[in-house]
Design a protein around this nucleic acid. Structure first.
Lengths: 203, 203
DNA sequence: CAAGTTCCCGACCGACCGGTCGATCAACGG
DNA sequence: CCGTTGATCGACCGGTCGGTCGGGAACTTG
């Protein structure tokens, strides 16, 4: 009864809802077991169907991985762009970018795990588009740091290396942050921003 | 002629030299293709032998992964212990720990990649010992931050979160740092330490 | 030279995996 | 009431992988 009335809108050739369920299950299983170790049967079983049924909705295993990557990077870019556009001072932009990144980990932990852990699990033509988007995101962060350095808001350290430090905080979160744990994403993001902007040492 | 005179010391049951070559090759291939995607034939071929020959020196594929992990974490703990023991001020300890970590990435890039990328690729009994060592390393960094907070050298931010920020810088390096690139490990470590201790913002 | 040890490898095995095929079944439209 | 469409799945296929086995080459030791 729960999954017997599909095709409510036969309008588009794009899938209606099953697709989302499939990607969700694939994300969880890829995240738990790793892309190569996970099997299509596993994903099918998690959806209450058998492998050939899953292949009715999906062409290749790699397509699932690609869909996960694309969905995530698009959303991350969109949110980050919005936040840094509505800020003025470089410090606020950096704080906002960290808040978006940590919030992303909190909301899409499995997806981020797949995104960062299975970064080079696949190749092919369309993969280049993802690399471009990933670079674009990094460039957004790099631009914040570079603007701060140029305007005199930030101290004179190598902006490229400082960017890597900020990206590290944003990207490493998926390995330890627990969305259901005692720490909130905003709390972590604020502390990270404080460390990155004011430093730990008392003067 | 290059590999025809083994067994120079039949003293120990421990392997003489081939073992090191095998682990080195496995490290490179696991790092490039991922543990699950890499095959034992690949590793054997890289060593100029066939798969059954490789299995003469190695019992299981998982043993290779375990050996890589163990070797690396032991060395990292040893070096970090030495550096933070010979320092006095928390700031110097933190700087030293970052220098060790980045130097590690520079010297054992493939190994660190396997170590951090294939963190949960295997299970089993002995795996617990590795988790304990990994936790011990993190605790060393945590203690530096906690000491700094307690002594008043560091500002009053949540030490647990600040520790994660430092660990992020140390651990994320393997994804981007190029040992043969224009940046030296010490250069990066110094800049990271500056960001973590003084912050980016001018006051 | 004979016994022993170490290493090597062609051939093989069982398991599993990504992916296909064809039959079946339910729902909908005319 | 029948044809079409979409979804499901048992059975199957080709390929690969981790791991084994048994025989042989090379070297050491006596």
């Amino acid at each position: 009864m729960s999954r017997t009335a599909p095709t409510p809108q036969p309008s588009e050739s794009a899938p209606p809802r099953v697709r989302a369920d499939i990607i969700e299950a694939a994300t969880r299983i890829f995240s738990e077991r790793g892309y190569h170790a996970a099997s299509m049967s596993e994903i099918a079983d998690a959806l209450g169907m058998r492998k050939p049924s899953l292949y009715h909705h999906v062409r290749k295993k790699e397509d699932l991985l690609f869909a996960i990557h694309e969905q995530l990077i698009d959303e991350l870019i969109e949110e980050t762009l919005a936040v840094i556009s509505s800020s003025e001072r470089p410090a606020d932009k950096l704080r906002g970018a960290l808040r978006v990144a940590l919030g992303f980990v909190a909301r899409h932990r499995d997806g981020v795990t797949v995104f960062l852990q299975e970064r080079s699990a696949v190749s092919g033509e369309r993969w280049n588009a993802l690399v471009v988007k990933r670079d674009f995101y990094e460039q957004m962060v790099a631009r914040i740091v570079a603007e701060g350095s140029a305007s005199g808001d930030f101290v004179a350290v190598d902006p490229a290396i400082a960017t890597k430090a900020v990206l590290a905080m944003a990207n490493w979160g998926y390995t330890w942050f627990q969305p259901d744990g005692p720490l909130s994403a905003d709390e972590v993001a604020e502390t990270f921003a404080t460390v990155a902007l004011r430093g730990l040492e008392v003067r």
